[in-house]
């Protein structure tokens, strides 16, 4: 019985500790495609993200229309033909740092992490696992990652005429500078 009480106390403490959250609205996510014919790059500096350092939970929310391209026409095609951003305006990621114990949020430094979670875009959700870095700095936490995604996995069809201009795999770059959230 004693054990049970301890367990419940721990789990209660665990829930109570959920207060340590870090957040940003100006995170960066970009992606690029390299082929022999064309280099395409898009940047989004309005990424909203929250990190809960007590649980390792991470969520991201991205407005598709906030991706900006070098060429206005590419941006139009991206929204109109590929992402259908009128129908699917947002992309979200819900995940968790699976090796949270290897990060010491009290000690500034860089820590390698692996994040598992669900990436939703274009109305398709896929489980992904990405490697990244958590950097604990004075007054905040930075997160960065580079990983690849395949547009076809998200039912984004690229027709034959432009098949050679767009790479089969896109490289995604994530750079987030979190600031602490005052607990309510």
């Amino acid at each position: 019985m004693k054990r049970i009480v301890i367990l419940f106390t721990i789990s209660f403490l665990f829930l109570a500790a959920n207060g340590q959250k870090f957040m940003t609205k100006n995170g960066y996510i970009g992606f690029s495609s390299h082929t022999a014919i064309d280099d395409i790059k898009a940047d989004n500096n309005q990424v909203a993200a929250v990190l809960d350092i007590s649980t390792g939970d991470m969520v991201f929310q991205v407005l598709i229309k906030s991706f900006h391209f070098e060429k206005a026409l590419m941006e139009e095609h991206f929204n109109e033909n590929y992402m259908e951003s009128d129908k699917f305006p947002k992309s979200t990621f819900r995940g968790k740092i699976i090796n949270l114990s290897s990060v010491d949020f009290n000690k500034p430094g860089k820590y390698d992490v692996t994040v598992d979670g669900d990436l939703n875009m274009h109305d398709v959700t896929n489980k992904i696992s990405v490697k990244g870095t958590i950097e604990v700095v004075q007054g905040g936490v930075n997160a960065s990652s580079k990983f690849n995604i395949v547009p076809e996995d998200y039912k984004i069809n690229i027709p034959g005429v432009v098949r050679d201009n767009i790479a089969k795999t896109l490289e995604v770059t994530v750079t987030i500078k979190y600031a602490p959230v005052e607990s309510k």
Partner: peptide, 9 residues
């Protein structure tokens, strides 16, 4: 917790 975080956003 993840839902809460989403709601925060």
């Amino acid at each position: 917790a993840q839902d809460d975080l989403m709601n925060m956003l």
